[in-house]
Amino acid sequence: MPVRRGHVAPQNTFLDTIIRKFEGQSRKFIIANARVENCAVIYCNDGFCELCGYSRAEVMQRPCTCDFLHGPRTQRRAAAQIAQALLGAEERKVEIAFYRKDGSCFLCLVDVVPVKNEDGAVIMFILNFEVVMEKDMVGSPAHDTNHRGPPTSWLAPGRAKTFRLKLPALLALTARESSVRSGGAGGAGAPGAVVVDVDLTPAAPSSESLALDEVTAMDNHVAGLGPAEERRALVGPGSPPRSAPGQLPSPRAHSLNPDASGSSCSLARTRSRESCASVRRASSADDIEAMRAGVLPPPPRHASTGAMHPLRSGLLNSTSDSDLVRYRTISKIPQITLNFVDLKGDPFLASPTSDREIIAPKIKERTHNVTEKVTQVLSLGADVLPEYKLQAPRIHRWTILHYSPFKAVWDWLILLLVIYTAVFTPYSAAFLLKETEEGPPATECGYACQPLAVVDLIVDIMFIVDILINFRTTYVNANEEVVSHPGRIAVHYFKGWFLIDMVAAIPFDLLI
């Protein structure tokens, strides 16, 4: 008679799926529990143990900040960024110097990925580790590398530091407007667009060049630039800015003055950032001319202004700041037409079709709590990747769950009947059967004279019903998954307890 339990259901295979997918890609990662103190490590794979030199037993239950890997060259700011990422709910990448158990130093890129439950609360953290440099290539500990984003994938490793954006290309926007319009339909740009040429040739750093990471940081200074100062900065030398009595002219307006920039070969870094931020506020060169004239017309309804409409929906549905990093990277690809469009465009503009998908598509409701890094690593669709929660398995109709209350009560009843059979069957065979043979035949009273025979008949009927119930009862397979398919249940029961239950259900007393 089957006594099969499996009270692990309803099970959740999400954690096993993450481990299996990460292991298949030869990654070095740990999984931490966000619900406990210090976000203790609950799993670390073999790749991480080989990377740091510690065994799994030495890593388990330690804080996922990996303070046991810190050393003299470990930056405090990087460690603080990892700790801050564990307090938030967004994906974050941090470069930090770690030390192995043998004392060797290596520069590592740590990717902190939160995993949320159905309520939107962070319950786990996945920390992925990628070695960037070994100890002989690690720089000085005073050099802070965590304020910069990861290198873009479309640049060669040897040319990542030679990417320079020439400031004269930004200063000569109005001069290039006529050349853009003359391109017409034969050019790649839309009317009114501004073409910015980027020099990728390796050259020595000069005062006129600005690194790509500095251009990325310009967006942080746009908020500090007032509207009046932006307007004066875009007017140009024809209309000098008016300053109040006793007030000095704005240095932001002076930063885009061609006369002032041409007199000296070098520009201050602050002026460069502010000038680029001011130019980015204009949607095209037409807006710059309109600002000089004193009238700013409404933005025209053409394809170039609607190019950012799908980007707005993608940004609203993005799951991490990696989408913004990807957008900034692609927006700086050289030799393309940049349409400086305000994100607050007309909502009635139709979304044009684009061959290049900048932001990841909208994630469906079932995966809105899973970050983009987890979705990318697992390579699963929205119909396959579940949320991290207890999910009731989908069972067929008329199927009994093996952990249901009805099955528990039924098993206790069958257990009592088995005990009765084990006690009274030998007793009936030894004593009652002998008395029946010696006594007179009682054929007239039937079952009324033999109450134990009636009980034995009921017990046999219950055993037959138990066999039928076992054909529709779920079970737990070797992978700790609840199986509810009727065919698989029948095959599993035939290979197991079916023969024993059938022999126990045969009414031998009635056959004798």
Rank of each mutant, 00 (worst) to 15 (best):
P361D: 04
T270Y: 05
G192I: 01
L324Y: 13
H302T: 06
D111G: 08
V341F: 04
G183N: 09
P240S: 09
R148P: 12
L256S: 14
T174H: 12
S261Y: 09
M60K: 01
F163E: 15
G120A: 12
R76D: 15
V295W: 13
V374A: 06
V180C: 11
N369C: 12
K28P: 13
R92P: 01
A78E: 10
S266C: 07
E23K: 01
G53T: 01
A172M: 01
R73T: 11
P361I: 09
S322V: 13
E177K: 09
A217Q: 14
L248Y: 04
I123C: 10
A260Y: 14
V115T: 05
T375V: 14
D144K: 07
A32G: 09
A78Q: 05
N317E: 14
S140F: 13
H7L: 15
A160C: 09
T145N: 15
A79T: 07
I42Y: 01
S255C: 05
Q376H: 07
R159L: 14
I333N: 12
P245R: 07
G381Q: 07
R366F: 13
T375H: 05
V295E: 15
G192M: 03
G226C: 13
F68V: 01
L380N: 04
D213K: 14
A307Q: 11
V59C: 04
A203H: 15
R4N: 14
H7K: 06
W154D: 15
P251D: 13
L349N: 14
R176K: 06
M308F: 07
G139K: 06
V196N: 11
E134S: 11
G262S: 15
A9P: 06
L86M: 10
G47K: 08
A360P: 15
E37R: 07
G345K: 14
T201Y: 03
C265I: 12
S207I: 15
G53D: 01
K93H: 07
T216A: 10
S275C: 12
V384L: 05
R27L: 06
S264R: 12
S255E: 13
G158W: 13
I18F: 06
H309F: 14
P298F: 08
S243Q: 07
I19L: 09
Q335L: 04
A185D: 14
C105S: 14
V94G: 01
L69R: 01
G306A: 12
G24N: 12
K28V: 12
C52K: 01
K373H: 01
E134D: 12
A211V: 13
P386R: 01
Q84K: 12
M291Q: 11
A80Q: 10
G192R: 01
R92W: 03
G345I: 04
A172R: 13
A204I: 01
T145H: 06
P310N: 07
A78R: 11
G314K: 09
R76W: 05
A160K: 06
Q84N: 06
L378M: 09
P258C: 10
A142V: 14
D342C: 01
I288H: 05
S261H: 11
V115N: 01
V94I: 13
T305C: 07
L267Q: 06
S104H: 14
L51V: 01
D287R: 04
A121D: 11
E214S: 06
R20W: 06
V3P: 07
D259W: 14
C52P: 01
Y43D: 01
E90W: 13
S379T: 07
D136V: 06
T65S: 07
A244P: 11
K28W: 01
H7G: 07
A303Y: 13
R73M: 06
S140Q: 14
R328A: 11
T367S: 11
S264P: 04
S153K: 14
V198N: 05
K93M: 09
K28Q: 07
P72V: 05
L212D: 14
R181T: 12
S261P: 13
A282F: 08
A85R: 01
F48L: 01
V325Y: 08
P241F: 15
W154I: 08
R77F: 09
P202W: 01
E95F: 05
S264E: 11
N33I: 05
M308S: 12
P251Y: 13
V325M: 14
C265D: 15
K373P: 03
A360K: 04
N33T: 09
N12M: 13
G187F: 06
N33A: 07
L256T: 05
L296A: 11
V94S: 04
L165H: 14
R176S: 06
V384M: 11
V222M: 08
P205E: 15
P63I: 01
D67C: 05
T375A: 06
V222Q: 06
N117L: 07
N369M: 04
